[in-house]
């Protein structure tokens, strides 16, 4: 599947099927620090992603002054 990552923006291929939490672990990310979005829908940790899916792994951590 195509996986869009941010900061910096890039796209990688990951073989499916794979569950969301396994994808996050494979990318060595913390589940608290990302959302996974397929199309325009959020997908929860136990969702199964297919090999032909396109997903975005969106970071949610902001830094700096507010």
């Amino acid at each position: 599947m195509k996986v869009l990552l941010r900061n910096p923006r890039r796209e990688i291929d990951v073989p499916g099927p794979i569950r969301v939490h396994a994808l996050i672990a494979r990318l060595e990310l913390n589940r608290e620090s990302v959302l996974v979005i397929r199309g325009d829908a959020l997908v929860p940790g136990d969702a199964l992603l297919a090999d032909d899916d396109v997903v975005e792994v969106r970071p949610v951590i902001s830094g700096g002054a507010r």
């Binding site: 941010r6 900061n7 923006r9 969106r58 970071p59 951590i61 902001s62 830094g63 700096g64 002054a65």
Partner: peptide
């Protein structure tokens, strides 16, 4: 705005 501020990186 999804991208991180370029000046905040690594703070």
């Amino acid at each position: 705005q999804v991208e991180e501020c370029p000046l905040a990186a690594g703070n």
